[in-house]
């Protein structure tokens, strides 16, 4: 996606978001939890960008901020150069048409009282697009593109009559029907079986081609991100740890946390000599300064003095490969891995 390098479609600058825990009945007030700590990202036109992290890393918060389900405390979000956080009225409505989200759980994201047709046509009605026959045609097209064909078999069904994979495809059709230019897909396959996940991945790739859309793919799995994404960012406790091209992150991971994630991927088949980094501490360090590197408590190669005091910033270590680590170990682990080594997603 080199052609669009200079003008990112979406730009996040120093985003900070905190949540306050609920006050207890007698307590003096909630504790502040930092969900995102000065996160900056650029996503270019036409790319699928992967945001990889564990639960609680803040990855879903990034997605929710982008579609403006929430507002950041600090920082700016720009889509096509326009500040998103300040949009009001008609501009906001237009924005909502351009940006769509696919949620994690298709068992909860669909209204059980709406048929497939009503679900997919609702965004068109809300945005007053087309007349009824045009809408019908668009719903038909979206369903077919999402792999629900022939659409006639599905339009009158309700969510409870669909399997998990079919529901997620309805959710995708609903996101597609407005022809958005930016789509946030938040773990769209974590509730689905492997063979169904593969279908969803391939539909998302087709969707990018068909709609000329840009995608943010939020996932916990580096293997899934590698398959789907052009670039990957790894997030840990609200901090970006490593950003690079998908191949670079998988073949040449630098940050100890990325390496620990790769070590932990479940794998099977003919794996031969596998790379193993062993960067995760068996027992977490207990007393850690709040200013320390967020991964310091679990990091084996950490420098006890430096990493315990300050938080490293992202640095460009190889061209377009950024790592937030004071003393990154550039040496890669030995091992090739068999060609038929499969990974869980």
């Amino acid at each position: 996606m080199a052609e669009g390098r200079h003008n990112p479609l979406l730009e996040l600058r120093d985003i900070r978001k905190t949540y306050r825990t609920r006050r207890s009945l007698f307590g003096s007030g909630g504790r502040e939890v930092v969900a995102l700590n000065s996160v900056s990202l650029e996503i270019y036109h036409g790319e699928i960008f992967g945001l990889v992290g564990e639960s609680g890393s803040g990855k879903t918060t990034v997605g929710r901020l982008i579609v403006r389900l929430e507002d950041p405390e600090q920082g700016s979000i720009r889509l096509e150069g326009v500040e998103v956080t300040k949009l009001r009225g008609k501009a906001l409505r237009d924005f909502r048409r351009k940006v769509q989200m696919i949620f994690q759980d298709p068992y909860q994201s669909l209204n059980p009282q709406l048929s497939v047709f009503d679900t997919v046509s609702e965004p068109l009605t809300v945005h007053r697009i087309g007349n009824s026959s045009q809408r019908e045609e668009q719903v038909r097209k979206a369903l077919t593109a999402a792999g629900l064909s022939p659409p006639e078999d599905y339009v009158f069904r309700y969510p409870h009559q669909l399997s998990g994979g079919q529901r997620q495809r309805v959710a995708i059709a609903r996101a597609m029907v407005l022809k958005p230019s930016f789509i946030v897909a938040d773990e769209p396959t974590s509730m689905l079986d492997a063979s169904i996940s593969a279908q969803i991945f391939n539909i998302l790739i087709e969707m990018r081609e068909k709609l000329d859309a840009t995608l943010l793919f939020i996932t916990h799995s580096l293997a899934a991100a590698r398959y789907l994404c052009d670039r990957i960012a790894v997030i840990y406790k609200g901090n970006l740890m490593e950003i690079g091209s998908a191949d670079e992150i998988i073949q040449n991971p630098i940050h100890p946390y990325t390496r620990a994630l790769l070590d932990a991927l479940p794998r099977f088949g003919d794996c031969g000599e596998m790379k193993y980094y062993g960067t995760l501490l068996g027992r977490e360090r207990e007393y850690v300064e709040p200013s320390a590197c967020p991964f310091f408590p679990r990091c084996r190669p950490a420098d006890e003095t430096k990493c315990s005091r300050d938080k490293p910033l992202l640095k460009e270590i190889f061209p377009s490969h950024f790592v937030a680590c004071f003393e990154p170990d550039l040496k890669q682990a030995e091992g090739s891995g068999g060609d038929t080594c499969f990974y869980g997603t």
Binding site: A194, S195, A198, A223, A224, R226, D339, F342, Y343, T345
Partner: peptide, 23 residues
């Protein structure tokens, strides 16, 4: 065989995932 080919590999060559068609 079909199930295995719906899992990704991490080898240098990116392999196309082949979902199982139908229900």
């Amino acid at each position: 065989k079909a199930l295995l080919s719906s899992y990704p590999t991490l080898s240098r060559e990116k392999k196309q995932l082949l979902p199982i068609p139908g229900d």
